[in-house]
Design a protein around this nucleic acid. Structure first.
Lengths: 97, 97
DNA sequence: CAGAGTACTTTGTAACACAAAGTTATCTAA
DNA sequence: TTAGATAACTTTGTGTTACAAAGTACTCTG
């Protein structure tokens, strides 16, 4: 496969993961439920996509209790931010021929 | 699923199809072999992705013989152009929060 | 300890991506 | 008229992915 496609990061090909990344770049920190209602996906589906982004070290989390409820905050890592940016610029290059 | 993701067109989620559409929007008309070497994919893979875009009426083709060789020219349809543009603007909206 | 809420994990299934090999069609050259 | 070349597919098989639904673990309150 040529570079023109190779530069597109497969981790961001899926719409849910694209949504997670965009949301986290815009919002800095979001909970599981924030993402769930923002994206409108099921628990399991969201969890698995988050997990794959964690595995790539693109997303990190901090667990705590807030208002006596479990609260997991997700953030993009520096690596994630960079990877996402270069994915976007790969798309731009693609579109400009 | 929320609108934020629903506006992303699943037909363009795949990298190869994204590449085909971009190439055809920039280039107006390309042959099977043009696309094949541009994207660096196998015959079968390319054919199946083109077929799915044809099925959505996003791409059309004209078959002929040029230089005594079979020549299939692919183009984006108006529908395809519009669909692709609104996909891109959905991505933009997503990124701007 | 029951119940509620968050955040998962497991399970099962259907869709998808892809390479490799096989097929069809139309030409040229002998 | 038939063998060979090339383009453009189609078929087949396999591994990967996406997803919903159901189940589980944890930690709180009453």
């Amino acid at each position: 496969m040529k570079d023109i496609l190779k530069d597109l990061n497969k981790a961001f090909e899926n719409r849910v993961r694209l949504g997670i990344m965009s949301a986290l770049i815009v919002n800095e920190a979001l909970t599981f439920n924030d993402l769930k209602s923002l994206l409108g996906v099921t628990d399991g589906n969201l969890a698995s996509h988050i997990k794959s982004l964690e595995k790539s070290k693109y997303v990190s989390y901090i667990k705590s209790f807030i208002d006596r409820k479990p609260n997991t905050e997700y953030r993009v890592t520096e690596l994630g931010k960079k990877a996402f940016e270069s994915h976007l610029s790969a798309i731009e290059r693609l579109l400009k021929g």
